[in-house]
């Protein structure tokens, strides 16, 4: 998996987590579903933590020279 995709996944996962959590404040809240959703949210938060801990930035110095017109 490329770093870019990984990074996107963090953003997506964070959005997904917010959505999951927002459900608990919504009108569709059902106790029967709550535990399952809470567990999913917890798992997602753990995944995000792991991603944040493990991901490194990829730094590339571009080969193009800028000291003269090309």
């Amino acid at each position: 998996m490329s770093t870019k995709n990984k990074s996107q996944t963090i953003t997506e996962k964070t959005d997904q987590l917010r959505e999951l959590v927002a459900w608990f404040d919504g009108d569709d809240f059902l106790l029967e579903e709550a535990m399952q959703r809470f567990e999913s949210a917890q798992k997602l938060a753990e995944e995000i933590e792991a991603d944040l801990k493990n991901l490194k930035n990829e730094i590339t110095i571009v080969s193009q020279k800028f000291d003269e017109d090309v």
Partner: peptide, 9 residues
């Protein structure tokens, strides 16, 4: 982390 950083020197 997870960012692609391209650097122009």
């Amino acid at each position: 982390g997870g960012i692609q950083i391209d650097v122009a020197h």
